[in-house]
Design a protein around this nucleic acid. Structure first.
Lengths: 230, 230
DNA sequence: TCAAAAGTGTTCCGAATACACCCATGT
DNA sequence: ACATGGGTGTATTCGGAACACTTTTGA
């Protein structure tokens, strides 16, 4: 079965930049090794072609699950890359997405996936296939910008987290140190954290209190015009 | 001549949301009347299909010029709309762009273009073809957000403008009144406006001083980490 | 008892806000 | 002379930034 059109059509793909936060404050991206040409054996973003019977969002989710095992994660459209020579085979326009996952919970799945996959620090990326280095650069810029005025950073942490973890996350993503007391004051004043009756376990020092992001309160405040801003 | 592929491919289009600022503080969008089905005779965004030998950005600029006569305007990618049933004919994914133009300078061109074109207040839009109402909603949200931390608002004004015009622009886009003295203090302190030795002409009251946006100073400051913010 | 991180308040400074009158110009 | 918008300064408030020590816990 083949499909014939009056005019030549670009092929349409999706690519996903999956961010994870590694314990000693470094931001990582998940890459997979290509098993087919072009760029065979090079590292690349997970992605693939959009089918005619699925939405672009659905294609991004499908490819993410097929290639990395990830599902039910934060996934948002990033930008569409449409230059002529992105792909040496033929004209391909790709719609890039970025995902935020809790690396601890998802480490295993990625490693056991059929194709080789791995997490790479964003400061030490290998040369990637296609224009994927550029796509990642755009994704990092977006993440840095967005993390300040939307509470998306929580997606990178476990459901229950300490204030220090949260602060380290922001320091890592923003690439700057933050004052501990000011950070706590500000984030607690927003009223978006639920203080749990639990503390850390198995740490060799005073155990920190655990918190949880208050999704429903955030939605309510947002409707009333509240702006998250750190 | 026809083109045959192994798999069915979505068709790829671009659409442009062109914003203009009308004198008595109202934000307008340029629409064109469709001369062909589907949605014949309905209003729609200027746009069309991406050719295989042009980049997506180039396609947006080409369509904009072909359908509205506009060229050399601020044009930036907005979002890609990829739901299944956007177009009743076949699967079409569209990459939306938004443009900012000085309405005074561009009014004539639009009106004299071959296909019928017109400026519509964003508060009184007619029902549009496809999902174009949704695209415009996304574009308005983007403009509101971006105008505060990037100096793109100037694109909506003539090169030489008064501080009152600038203030009215922000009040219009943001949909809120601003204090005159505070606004002037803040915008002048940034050092991004060149005070000209010219004033308004042909106004029935005291003529206001004209200013110009200082593009090169802005680029320099931006490299040093300066953040425009209003 | 030591190491390591948790937790906690106050002062200071700069920016945002609120606010009202005189000035210049064309009709 | 009057109508219309242009242009200007100060006092107050609020939020951001800087800053150091005590507490808890496990090893």
């Amino acid at each position: 079965m083949t499909y014939t059109y009056e005019y030549s059509r670009p092929n349409l793909a999706v690519d996903c930049v999956v961010f994870g936060l590694d314990e000693p404050n470094s931001l990582k991206v998940m890459l997979i090794r290509r098993s087919l040409p072009p760029f065979q054996d090079q590292w690349a973003l997970p992605g693939g072609f959009v089918r005619v019977d699925e939405s672009v969002d659905a294609a991004a989710r499908r490819e993410l699950q097929e290639e990395t095992g990830l599902k039910d994660v934060f996934l948002e459209q990033l930008y569409t890359f449409g230059l002529l020579d992105r792909d040496p085979r033929e004209r391909v326009v790709t719609i890039a997405y970025y995902a935020l996952v809790n690396l601890q919970e998802h480490l295993i799945q990625a490693a056991t996936d059929a194709s080789e996959a791995g997490w790479f620090s964003i400061t030490q990326l290998p040369p990637l296939a296609f224009d994927h280095n550029e796509i990642i650069a755009v994704a990092i810029a977006r993440l840095k910008g967005k993390v300040r005025y939307e509470p998306i950073g929580f997606e990178l942490l476990p459901k229950k987290f300490t204030l220090s973890q949260l602060q380290t996350l922001y320091e890592t993503v923003l690439g700057m140190p933050l004052d501990k007391r000011n950070f706590r004051k500000k984030i607690l004043k927003m009223g978006l954290l639920i203080e749990l009756d639990e503390t850390q376990t198995e740490v060799a020092h005073r155990a920190a209190r655990l918190y949880q992001f208050d999704e429903s309160t955030y939605r309510q405040l947002k409707e009333k015009g509240f702006n998250f801003e750190l």
